[in-house]
Nucleic acid binder design. Structure first.
Lengths: 223, 223
DNA sequence: AATGGAAACAATGCATACATTAATGTATTT
DNA sequence: AAATACATTAATGTATGCATTGTTTCCATT
């Protein structure tokens, strides 16, 4: 699934930095120079630089000429953009899967992920829930098989990750969202393309509305 | 529109290589080592390498450990993937523009591009036609305003460029396609979201079918 | 005290040097 | 002749050095 490890060092730098950004160890707006990062990672500037270029291409950081690398904050407009794309792509992919039909074995990862969401929800394990949610969406795209779409959507997920984690704790338990996943899975099982599309679209629309609402209500400047 | 010029050399290398790939000066399957490319561009390996990393992230080349940089060929499956994404993204964007309404001034670039297509078609200027077609799609996304979608779609266009140019000369004049553009523009003008969506979707579906048909009929291994 | 400018500083862009390692060719053995 | 092992070559991965250039600091002037 990941061929990210071009080489030990640059691959390591890439993974580590991405991890630190996702986990908010390098929070939005965080700034550091290349030598600082290189020092922290225990390598020279060269592999760090190559990793940074990739991260910049994925929209996670930006390299500002003399001011260092900056972790780009995600604002409401950004989430709007991201959800617009997801709303266009995912329901389409899901519907195609439904139309062409999928064996129970193929659907197993989705079933597992859905169960994991339901379980995590029952346990009040928000982080577990978020992870299962991610897995569901990722596995769905994997099942669909469009590599480019996978890469693209994964990049969007990565960008949105922090905002999703933060807002997850600002609202009631994601009961509705979990039910919607179950529903989507059922529509796929039924081979109902139209229904799958509609369900997924509704899922995304509601999620976007909720999230954007929170971002605006709480005046969150950038996550 | 382009912020690609990180610096003189790496920006130059990036543009030049991209140009050479688009124009088939470096044809699909073409292979070269970093020193060779650096020599050809008259700079050291460092800026070349940074440009290559970006081009790889955009899916135009791949860097194979000891065998050099390779221009990735586009095969039928790739075009399938690309068109799937475009079919999901562009009609959605166009429909949103239609729904929210656009002034005649905002639509001017689209009108110009459409006229240019019609003109080029009348002159039998296929390259001019292709360029105007590109402009139409690019301007549409620009009008919509979703930066991420712009970047993504642009990358897909870049990947598909060669195949489009080649197949353009394997079929009759793109009369139908030109008419469809005119139709889409009219639906946007009319503020008809549904109609816009349907028209654009049909446009993409037909284009995809035609192109994939050609690729398969002619057994083109990779463009 | 505030403003303007010059000098020191520091980060980046690029070049180059070096180490590692895979591919190729050669020689030796069977 | 074929195959294996070894040596050579060459490309990549990484480190380092250097020049350029933007930023900041500090001082002088108003």
């Amino acid at each position: 699934m990941k061929q990210a490890a071009k080489s030990k060092l640059v691959g390591g730098a890439y993974e580590r930095l991405k991890h630190d950004i996702r986990m908010n160890l390098m929070p939005p707006g965080f700034q550091a120079t290349e030598p600082e990062i290189a020092l922290r990672l225990g390598m020279s500037r060269t592999p760090v630089r190559e990793a940074l270029i990739r991260l910049e291409a994925e929209g996670l950081i930006e390299m500002i000429p003399r001011r260092g690398v900056r972790v780009v904050p995600i604002r409401a407009e950004d989430m709007q953009e991201i959800y617009e794309m997801l709303t266009a792509l995912e329901p389409e992919a899901a519907a195609q899967i439904a139309r062409r039909g999928a064996s129970e074995a193929e659907l197993a990862p989705l079933e597992d992920a859905t169960r994991a969401m339901e379980g995590a929800l029952a346990d009040g394990d928000l982080d577990g829930w978020a992870q299962a949610d991610d897995t569901f969406h990722t596995e769905l795209l994997a099942l669909h098989g469009n590599r480019r779409m996978m890469t693209c959507v994964q990049a969007l997920f990565d960008q949105a990750h922090r905002a999703r984690i933060v807002t997850l704790r600002m609202r009631a338990l994601p009961l509705r969202s979990t039910q919607e996943h179950r529903m989507i899975l059922e529509r796929i099982r039924a081979g109902d393309g139209e229904g799958t599309y509609a369900a997924f679209r509704a899922h995304r629309a509601r999620a976007a509305e909720e999230l954007l609402g929170l971002l605006q209500d709480y005046r969150l400047p950038g996550l």
